[in-house]
Amino acid sequence: MAEQVALSRTQVCGILREELFQGDAFHQSDTHIFIIMGASGDLAKKKIYPTIWWLFRDGLLPENTFIVGYARSRLTVADIRKQSEPFFKATPEEKLKLEDFFARNSYVAGQYDDAASYQRLNSHMNALHLGSQANRLFYLALPPTVYEAVTKNIHESCMSQIGWNRIIVEKPFGRDLQSSDRLSNHISSLFREDQIYRIDHYLGKEMVQNLMVLRFANRIFGPIWNRDNIACVILTFKEPFGTEGRGGYFDEFGIIRDVMQNHLLQMLCLVAMEKPASTNSDDVRDEKVKVLKCISEVQANNVVLGQYVGNPDGEGEATKGYLDDPTVPRGSTTATFAAVVLYVENERWDGVPFILRCGKALNERKAEVRLQFHDVAGDIFHQQCKRNELVIRVQPNEAVYTKMMTKKPGMFFNPEESELDLTYGNRYKNVKLPDAYERLILDVFCGSQMHFVRSDELREAWRIFTPLLHQIELEKPKPIPYIYGSRGPTEADELMKRVGFQYEGTYKWVNP
């Protein structure tokens, strides 16, 4: 592979701008107003304001973009700056750019259920340069409990009458099928589907988006991507930290609602779906819905739930269990780990287990898709061969690698495990991989909904998990304890083995 010439960040961002501006969906010269509902909250200060700053800094926003914060707290732009700027990672050389960014910011205080507050917000936006005809993007960085009041008031008082209007809704989209349907029906009564952007930030990850290209742009994968060759698929999300004093919020939802029903299920769809007619948003989402419709409700015998306990040999936070978090209700049975087996009941995947695993306070930070292939028929190497695996590593250190057998150097035919490896950090030294939120917010500006969740996708996802969630809430089974920093409950490994996964433990990928 030829040595790549190092590029400056300015040059890299210039390439990104060229890609972005050559499309006809990006209205570079139009006025846009980006409204952050819930501007005083954690999500706004840690993710949304920093993301908008990065896009502005790199010249990736339309030229005439204004940012308006809205929340109940009586704040000023200076207050917003004070709480969000520490997350910007701005350099001293960017000081003038930073001043320009905050000059485009404003803030309006108001209630979430008060019509007069929204009329005041609308008047404020109209007073901005060309504000009355601007395109408006409303980001709901809010708890779902206020979605209905907020969307109703936005629709009645704050819509642009000339430009387009788009609304970005953060997960969780309800707690179960019934609450999700209620919320979807409410929002759909106010906005068209092409105006609604239900954001799952995992769909903005580079390697998640790469799944489609790997599958449908490489001839070698087509013939082997089926039940005849693939023994099982494992989708993993692991965090090495616990709730760390923020367990009160987590306890309301648990690990299945927080990660599995959305992030992991979306990745499953991209692995299992048929080739779409095109890369058009609805063509892709149509195929994802077909996959979900082929999955039956989760069966309790295919589920393992766990909850982390303190590690007596650990240090600091590792010595504390979930129930030691003062914000967690006493005696909570909320799971911090889950392993679930699903089956896609169609011709391509009949009988292939899709194993979804996620948890907190585990032994490493990792998100990946792992396809394990069947054993080689007619073994001539005296059971020395391990199964081939194709691994798409989402985070950290984005990579695609194939675990395969090669001859060990020497005189004899002794096979050993090795890999074919594409590590993004080595291959793409001159490429700026956008943060997931950067990519998705740019998608909203461009009107691309491919990486957002459609209402029928959402409904099918909740259909699969709601009976299990209701059973857990009714019966309150005690989750299996696992030690902070471990791989999780051993019962999860036993479940995976029972459905056909072979864990060798003899080879570990190392970032080159």
Rank of each mutant, 00 (worst) to 15 (best):
A2E: 11
E3A: 08
E3I: 06
S8M: 09
T10E: 15
T10S: 15
V12P: 12
I15Y: 09
L16S: 10
L16W: 10
R17N: 14
R17K: 13
E18P: 07
E18G: 14
E19G: 13
L20T: 06
F21H: 09
F21E: 10
G23F: 14
D24K: 11
D24T: 08
F26E: 11
H27T: 08
H27F: 12
D30G: 10
D30A: 09
T31F: 10
H32E: 08
H32W: 08
I33M: 11
I35H: 02
M37A: 12
G38A: 04
G38L: 03
G41V: 06
A44Q: 03
I48S: 03
Y49L: 15
Y49T: 04
Y49G: 02
P50N: 06
P50T: 07
I52P: 04
W53F: 06
W54L: 11
D58P: 03
G59R: 09
G59Y: 03
G59A: 07
G59E: 08
L60S: 04
L61T: 08
P62W: 08
E63C: 07
E63M: 12
N64M: 08
T65V: 14
T65I: 13
I67A: 03
I67G: 02
V68C: 09
Y70R: 05
A71M: 03
R72K: 04
S73V: 00
T76C: 12
V77I: 15
V77P: 10
Q83R: 13
S84K: 03
E85Y: 09
F87L: 12
F88R: 01
K89D: 14
K89S: 14
T91N: 13
P92D: 12
E94I: 00
E94M: 08
E94P: 02
L96C: 13
L98E: 05
L98I: 10
E99T: 10
D100R: 09
F101P: 01
F102E: 04
A103S: 15
A103R: 13
R104P: 00
N105A: 07
A109Y: 15
D113P: 08
A115E: 13
A115K: 15
Q119N: 15
M125T: 14
N126D: 15
L128G: 07
L130V: 15
G131W: 07
S132R: 15
Q133S: 14
Q133D: 13
N135E: 06
R136L: 05
L137Y: 08
F138M: 04
L140V: 11
A141D: 03
P143F: 02
P143N: 09
P143H: 00
Y147Q: 02
E148T: 15
E148R: 12
E148L: 12
A149M: 11
A149P: 12
T151W: 10
T151Q: 06
I154N: 01
I154F: 02
H155V: 07
H155Q: 12
H155N: 15
S157Q: 15
C158W: 04
I162A: 13
I162N: 14
G163F: 05
W164Y: 09
N165C: 15
N165V: 10
I168D: 02
I168V: 08
I168P: 06
V169T: 06
V169R: 01
E170K: 01
E170V: 01
E170H: 04
K171S: 01
K171W: 04
P172W: 03
F173R: 01
R175W: 04
R175K: 12
D176P: 02
L177R: 11
L177W: 06
L177A: 11
L177E: 08
Q178Y: 10
Q178W: 14
S179R: 03
S179C: 05
D181N: 13
L183V: 05
H186A: 13
H186T: 09
I187W: 03
S188P: 06
L190P: 01
L190G: 06
D194P: 09
D194Q: 10
D194I: 08
Q195Y: 04
I199R: 04
D200Y: 01
H201R: 04
G204P: 01
K205T: 04
M207H: 04
M207P: 04
Q209T: 10
N210H: 03
L211M: 15
L211D: 03
V213R: 02
L214H: 07
A217P: 02
A217L: 00
A217F: 03
A217D: 03
N218G: 01
I220L: 14
I224V: 15
I224R: 05
W225F: 12
C232T: 12
I234H: 15
T236V: 06
F237W: 11
P240K: 06
P240N: 14
P240A: 08
F241D: 04
G245R: 08
R246D: 03
R246G: 04
G248C: 05
Y249G: 03
D251R: 01
D251E: 06
F253V: 06
G254F: 02
